[in-house]
């Protein structure tokens, strides 16, 4: 076989392959599925600063319903509601619950009468084993009904609950103490920005440096403040910054006064007491008139 024949065959093959490639290699544009629009929640700065750190294996919120109290953080503070301890529903026995639900306004007379109606059922251990018809009602007993719940076979589970019947449910701030699916970078054990800002606002509002010292824009006074759990000072404010001169002394004294006057610092939440047990607070005269956070409180 001559090489010419082979060349002709080869050329023919190449032409065929190229023709096929030219026809079939037309680039098709990638099909892009349009992205569906996602609902976006706008998280305010305050909410963001209060994000708690989550762990990966936390139960889903649906599987484990939250405790009874709704989070009240966003609403205007209602001190009465938040402070008042709530009775856990589980422990409540029927008469109390119904009584509470059915008496719309606190009626002093009705309150006095109704506990008398309730027969104080002695919660004997034997009673659980042998359920018997309710005994006839007895004369009123002075004990409050919470302490002496009436026995009913439907409430055995509640009666078996050995916990303190008047124990408090968690209230607002401790609501999310159980680990939840939070953000990866949330830092729960730190003072949130809002708390720091509130503290700063309060201290700066109380701080009145001498009028002439306002021009001394570079004076910074660091004061170590030790708190007790209730927000009052554990020890006297300790001035860390060292300095001299009448201006410095005047500003230092005014800062110490501000710290003393400002207590109790209720904006610091007791759950985070570890973090604000001791705070080095800097009074900065240059930020005095520019940086005061006015928005909160």
């Amino acid at each position: 076989m001559q090489i010419k024949t082979a060349s002709a065959i080869s050329t023919g093959l190449h032409v065929l392959v190229l023709a096929w490639a030219t026809l079939s290699f037309n680039s098709k544009p990638f099909e892009t599925t349009p992205a569906e629009s996602l609902p976006v929640d706008i998280v305010s700065e305050k909410e963001f600063s209060q994000l708690t750190k989550g762990i990966k294996d936390a139960p889903k919120p649906i599987e484990k319903p939250k405790p009874v109290v709704e989070k009240k953080a966003e609403e205007p503070p209602k001190p009465v509601e938040e402070i008042k301890p709530k009775i856990d529903e589980k422990r409540e026995v029927a008469p109390n619950k119904e009584m509470k639900a059915e008496t719309p306004p606190p009626d002093p007379i009705a309150d006095k009468i109704k506990p008398q109606d309730k027969p104080p059922e002695p919660a004997k251990p034997l009673a659980q084993a042998q359920p018997q018809p309710l005994p006839p009602k007895r004369p009123p007993m002075p004990k409050p009904p919470q302490k002496q719940p009436e026995f009913s076979p439907d409430k055995i589970a509640a009666l078996l609950d050995k916990r303190d019947p008047t124990r408090k449910s968690v209230t607002g701030a401790e609501l999310n103490s159980a680990p939840s699916l939070g953000t990866a970078s949330g830092a729960a054990a730190q003072l949130s920005q809002s708390e720091i800002d509130a503290l700063k606002a309060r201290l700066y509002a109380l701080w009145s440096p001498p009028a002439g010292a306002q021009d001394a824009s570079n004076v910074q006074i660091m004061i170590r403040i030790r708190f007790k759990r209730d927000g009052t000072l554990a020890t006297g404010p300790q001035v860390i910054t060292s300095g001299s001169g009448p201006v410095f002394n005047a500003m230092r004294d005014s800062a110490v006064r501000a710290v003393l006057v400002g207590q109790p610092y209720t904006m610091l939440r007791p759950e985070h007491y570890d973090t604000w047990q001791e705070i080095d607070f800097v009074f900065d005269s240059s930020k005095m008139y520019s940086d005061i956070p006015v928005r909160r409180q």
């Binding site: 082979a6 060349s7 002709a8 065959i9 080869s10 050329t11 190449h14």
Partner: peptide, 8 residues
Amino acid sequence: WVWAIAID
């Protein structure tokens, strides 16, 4: 050319 040689 390669294919021609190969066939040949």
